[in-house]
Protein backbone atom coordinates (compact mmCIF):
# COMPACT_ATOMS: atom_id res chain seq x y z
CA UNK A 1 0.00 0.00 0.00
CA UNK A 2 2.71 2.41 0.98
CA UNK A 3 4.57 1.79 -2.28
CA UNK A 4 1.46 2.54 -4.30
CA UNK A 5 1.11 6.02 -2.96
CA UNK A 6 4.79 6.85 -2.66
CA UNK A 7 5.18 8.56 -6.08
CA UNK A 8 2.19 10.78 -5.40
CA UNK A 9 3.64 11.90 -2.08
CA UNK A 10 6.83 13.01 -3.79
CA UNK A 11 4.94 14.96 -6.42
CA UNK A 12 5.15 18.65 -5.81
CA UNK A 13 1.73 20.21 -6.30
CA UNK A 14 2.14 21.13 -9.97
CA UNK A 15 0.75 24.49 -11.04
CA UNK A 16 -2.60 24.12 -12.73
CA UNK A 17 -1.48 24.52 -16.37
CA UNK A 18 -4.83 24.99 -18.16
CA UNK A 19 -5.96 27.35 -15.40
CA UNK A 20 -2.75 29.36 -15.62
CA UNK A 21 -2.95 29.81 -19.39
CA UNK A 22 -6.66 30.69 -19.10
CA UNK A 23 -5.88 33.39 -16.55
CA UNK A 24 -2.88 34.76 -18.46
CA UNK A 25 -4.64 34.93 -21.84
CA UNK A 26 -7.77 36.61 -20.51
CA UNK A 27 -5.95 38.86 -18.04
CA UNK A 28 -3.45 40.12 -20.63
CA UNK A 29 -6.13 40.77 -23.24
CA UNK A 30 -8.27 42.56 -20.70
CA UNK A 31 -5.46 44.82 -19.47
CA UNK A 32 -4.45 45.76 -23.02
CA UNK A 33 -8.11 46.39 -23.83
CA UNK A 34 -8.58 48.54 -20.71
CA UNK A 35 -5.45 50.60 -21.41
CA UNK A 36 -6.52 51.13 -25.03
CA UNK A 37 -9.97 52.28 -23.91
CA UNK A 38 -8.34 54.79 -21.54
CA UNK A 39 -5.58 56.14 -23.71
CA UNK A 40 -6.78 55.81 -27.29
CA UNK A 41 -10.39 57.01 -27.25
CA UNK A 42 -10.23 58.24 -30.84
CA UNK A 43 -8.82 54.95 -32.07
CA UNK A 44 -11.61 53.04 -30.33
CA UNK A 45 -14.20 55.32 -31.95
CA UNK A 46 -12.92 54.61 -35.48
CA UNK A 47 -15.67 53.20 -37.69
CA UNK A 48 -15.02 49.79 -39.22
CA UNK A 49 -18.22 49.42 -41.21
CA UNK A 50 -21.56 51.12 -40.83
CA UNK A 51 -21.81 52.38 -37.26
CA UNK A 52 -19.70 49.55 -35.82
CA UNK A 53 -16.55 50.94 -34.21
CA UNK A 54 -13.29 49.23 -33.26
CA UNK A 55 -14.34 49.57 -29.61
CA UNK A 56 -17.53 47.57 -30.07
CA UNK A 57 -15.64 44.98 -32.08
CA UNK A 58 -13.01 44.69 -29.34
CA UNK A 59 -15.70 44.18 -26.69
CA UNK A 60 -17.27 41.38 -28.76
CA UNK A 61 -13.88 39.76 -29.34
CA UNK A 62 -13.08 39.90 -25.62
CA UNK A 63 -16.40 38.21 -24.83
CA UNK A 64 -15.92 35.46 -27.41
CA UNK A 65 -12.36 34.92 -26.17
CA UNK A 66 -13.73 34.23 -22.68
CA UNK A 67 -16.34 31.78 -23.98
CA UNK A 68 -13.79 29.95 -26.12
CA UNK A 69 -11.03 29.76 -23.50
CA UNK A 70 -13.52 28.74 -20.82
CA UNK A 71 -14.74 25.79 -22.90
CA UNK A 72 -11.13 24.84 -23.64
CA UNK A 73 -10.12 25.13 -19.99
CA UNK A 74 -13.05 23.00 -18.89
CA UNK A 75 -12.19 20.26 -21.40
CA UNK A 76 -8.48 20.21 -20.64
CA UNK A 77 -8.94 20.31 -16.87
CA UNK A 78 -11.01 17.13 -17.24
CA UNK A 79 -8.30 15.45 -19.32
CA UNK A 80 -5.73 16.23 -16.65
CA UNK A 81 -7.79 14.61 -13.91
CA UNK A 82 -8.27 11.31 -15.77
CA UNK A 83 -4.59 10.20 -16.02
CA UNK A 84 -4.04 10.95 -12.34
CA UNK A 85 -6.96 8.73 -11.42
CA UNK A 86 -5.51 5.94 -13.58
CA UNK A 87 -2.19 6.32 -11.78
CA UNK A 88 -4.04 5.77 -8.52
CA UNK A 89 -5.68 2.58 -9.82
CA UNK A 90 -2.42 0.81 -10.67
Amino acid sequence: MAQQHAPLLHHRPRPDRPGLSFAVVNGLTFSVHLLLACSAADFMATRVWGKTTIGVLALLIQGFLLVWTAARYDRRADQRVVPQEQELDY
Binding site: G19, F22, A23, Q62, L66, D74
Partner: peptide, 13 residues
Protein backbone atom coordinates in the same frame (compact mmCIF):
# COMPACT_ATOMS: atom_id res chain seq x y z
CA UNK B 1 -21.60 44.95 -19.28
CA UNK B 2 -18.52 43.21 -20.66
CA UNK B 3 -16.75 43.40 -17.28
CA UNK B 4 -19.77 41.88 -15.54
CA UNK B 5 -19.49 39.02 -18.01
CA UNK B 6 -15.70 38.73 -17.62
CA UNK B 7 -15.99 38.38 -13.86
CA UNK B 8 -17.28 34.85 -14.48
CA UNK B 9 -13.77 34.00 -15.71
CA UNK B 10 -12.48 34.75 -12.21
CA UNK B 11 -15.23 32.56 -10.79
CA UNK B 12 -14.30 29.77 -13.22
CA UNK B 13 -10.74 29.78 -11.89
Amino acid sequence: AMCTFLSLGVLLL
